[in-house]
């Protein structure tokens, strides 16, 4: 489904050149739940940005569902983000002036769904995350966990085949984090491919596979099951 080969990403300023990804290759199969781990500055978020078509690579090849998406124009990338990819952000990224319903509606409007279809999708996804009763609440009236569930509802409302989650529990306490992970696991069971970027080895352990990134390169692609009794050692 996701196939990156020899991806390079370099950030340049007047003074500094930072090689965020170097010869970065990874493949994610349809239906997988993959955790991407690594220390701060290792390139996890850059990988996520390129995977989610938020940024373009400086070199290498990126195929999504067999399509070469690394060189697409801005509008085409926006279209793919909207139709095939769902995003879950660490800071939830809800729009504070919009209520829960309208927040979930944001990507659906760009998709061009008719009102009735949008409403059905919003209600269904909020039902799934357990917030159907809070449709007219503003984000500020919800807890952090509830806000992240709204963000998940927004990510899945358009039925994407691919969910990218960037530290989705980073701002939550452990109980809420577990609830969110349960929710993501359930979404994955229903067939959505999930790539989860996290610092947390506990969360990474719940994925089918762990991709460890260090200095812009993949250092470990083994599934946890293959690492025996001490999976955390691989991601430390």
């Amino acid at each position: 489904m996701l196939d990156m080969q020899h991806i390079i990403k370099v950030y340049r300023t007047d003074l500094v050149e930072t090689h965020a990804l170097r010869d970065f290759s990874v493949t994610v199969a349809e239906g997988e739940f993959v955790a991407v781990t690594g220390p701060s500055g290792s390139g996890k978020t850059t990988f996520l940005n390129i995977a989610g078509l938020l940024e373009t690579p400086d070199g290498g090849r990126y195929q999504l569902d067999g399509d070469d998406v690394g060189t697409l124009g801005d509008d085409a990338r926006a279209g793919i983000r909207n139709q095939r990819i769902g995003f879950i952000f660490q800071g939830f990224n809800l729009i504070p002036d919009l209520d829960v319903f309208d927040n979930v509606d944001v990507p659906l409007r760009y998709r061009g769904f008719v009102t009735r279809d949008r409403r059905a999708r919003i209600e269904r996804s909020l039902e799934l995350v357990g917030l159907a009763a809070r449709m007219r609440h503003l984000p500020s009236q919800l807890s952090g966990g509830q806000q992240q569930r709204v963000a998940i509802a927004r990510a899945i409302a358009g039925d994407p085949r691919f969910l990218l989650a960037d530290e989705p529990t980073g701002n939550l306490d452990s109980l809420m984090a577990r609830q969110i992970m349960d929710l993501l696991a359930e979404i994955n069971r229903q067939g959505t491919t999930i790539v989860l970027v996290t610092h947390d080895p506990e969360l990474a352990r719940r994925a089918h596979r762990n991709i460890h990134v260090m200095d812009g390169q993949v250092t470990d692609l083994k599934p946890y099951a293959a690492r025996g009794a001490a999976p955390d050692a691989a991601v430390a």
């Binding site: 989610g52 509008d75 279209g79």
Partner: peptide
């Protein structure tokens, strides 16, 4: 800026 970036990430084109 963050909201606009989020909208873009969620599929808004520049024209949107």
């Amino acid at each position: 800026r963050k909201q606009i970036g989020t909208r873009r990430a969620l599929g808004a084109r520049r024209a949107d």
